[in-house]
Amino acid sequence: MQSEVQFAGFGGQGIMLMGQILAQAAMDQGFEVVWIPSYGPEMRGGTAYCTVVISDRPIGSPIIRNPQHLVAMNRPSLEKFAPTVKAGGVIFINSSIIPIGSGRGDVDELCVPIIEIAKELGNTKVANIVALAAFGTRSRIVEFDILREAVRSKFADKEKLIPLNLQALEEGRKAALAS
């Protein structure tokens, strides 16, 4: 079994970090993983995206044109990548700033107003963690407890940020279960 997740949005939305935490969790759960960023000039303020490939076998091609799932953090990403997602996958939509849907009838669409949720937690910077939790809950690629541990270890050297991020994780999960 192999699944691929594309994370996409503006530079500064924490796209790379979301992918890295998912990859870490998948590795901790015993899967083979590859995380691939977009890199270069487009990182500086433009679009940013990364792909995470998770498999129970050694991963062949790390280059994915048609991912299983998409986490779209802004409208251009949704418009660009929604058509590439495989049927049956999850398309996560940051509905705080994306007023449209994916237009796909063959996928599981999940819309969460992550910025409002993060604002209520007191810091919009954790919107990506809300999104990651919501997507993780819906896609069930990794166990939630392992995802939580991955968040904890990612912020190990910024310990005072851990409680906020764990809270964001919980809120994201709730939002996914409620929708």
Partner: peptide
């Protein structure tokens, strides 16, 4: 470039 840029265990 991918060898340098990708993350793997």
């Amino acid at each position: 470039g991918l060898i340098g840029q990708m993350m793997e265990p």
